[in-house]
Simulated scan of single mutants.
Amino acid sequence: ETNTLPFHPFENQQGDILRMDKEHQVLKEQLREAEEKFEQLRSRSLEEIDTLEELLKKSIEETEVSQNELDWFHQDSETQMKKWQQEKKENRESLKALKGTAKKHSDSNERYLKTIDDKEKQYNVCLNKFLETSNTFANEKGKLEELIKKSQDDSQECEKRAVQAEVSVLQTWKETEIWKLKGTIAKAERNLGMLKALSSSASADPVMKSQIDSWEIFISNVKKQLEKVEAEYEEKIEQVKNGARNCLSRVEVVDFPFP
């Protein structure tokens, strides 16, 4: 027969020990699970702590670098500020000097403008006078140009007549000299003909032959002289026609003595 009565003092009612044992097992299992979770959480926490410590270390290093950069920036800013203040001071002084210079230039410009205005008035007076005089000169110039043209026409006509006169004089001298030389040649040829006629009827005479040779040489020289005189006169005439001056002179003629 089964005893179903409670087991005093451990049970208030039957089955309390079994129930407590089950609860103990459940609590033990929960404790084991809690320990496992705690270990997992602890492991993750350690990893996170290591990561955070690494990040903290890196952050501290970066903070130190940033602080150095900030210090450098502050120093550079102070230097730039001092430089800017110095430049500002210099610019203020330069501006003051420029204002003074601008004032001087402004005063000078006013004087120059007044001078220019006075000069412009003087210029207008002179210009009006010049235009009046220019018109007078233009009228006189027209008259002078007409006189000059007439004088040029007269001069050209006179020059043309002078050329014609010089050519006429040279032509007359040429014809005169040629007439004289041709007369001399004709006379010499008659004498030569007479000598040749006498020499053909007489016996050979050395004196006669010598005279014939002399007359032939004389005639040859005079003919050459004739050609030379005619050519030189023609050259002078052409020079005069082409505008040459100081050509009105006789050609030198050699006077050959008769044999």
Rank of each mutant, 00 (worst) to 15 (best):
C158E: 02
E159R: 12
E159T: 14
R161I: 10
R161W: 10
V163F: 00
Q164F: 12
A165Q: 02
A165C: 02
S168E: 07
L170S: 07
L170K: 08
Q171I: 00
T172L: 05
W173R: 02
K174Y: 10
E175A: 07
E175T: 08
T176V: 03
E177Y: 10
I178P: 00
W179Q: 15
W179R: 15
W179K: 15
K180E: 15
K182S: 11
T184Y: 14
I185S: 09
A186E: 03
A186L: 04
A186K: 07
A188V: 06
A188M: 09
A188H: 06
R190Y: 12
N191R: 15
G193N: 11
M194H: 04
L195H: 00
K196R: 14
K196Y: 08
K196Q: 14
A197M: 09
L198P: 03
L198R: 08
S199T: 08
S199D: 13
S199W: 09
S200A: 15
A202V: 10
S203E: 13
A204H: 14
A204P: 15
A204N: 14
P206Q: 01
K209P: 04
Q211M: 14
Q211K: 15
Q211F: 10
S214H: 01
W215D: 00
I217V: 13
I217W: 06
I217L: 13
I217D: 13
F218H: 14
I219S: 08
N221M: 10
N221F: 04
Q225I: 01
Q225F: 03
L226C: 14
L226M: 15
K228Q: 10
V229M: 08
V229E: 04
A231D: 04
A231H: 01
A231F: 01
A231Q: 05
E232P: 03
E232C: 07
E232D: 14
E234R: 12
E235P: 03
E235A: 13
K236D: 09
K236G: 07
K236F: 11
E238P: 04
Q239P: 03
V240N: 11
K241Q: 11
K241H: 07
N242V: 08
N242G: 10
A244F: 04
R245H: 05
L248Y: 03
S249Q: 11
S249K: 08
V251N: 07
E252H: 11
V254I: 12
V254F: 05
D255S: 13
D255C: 11
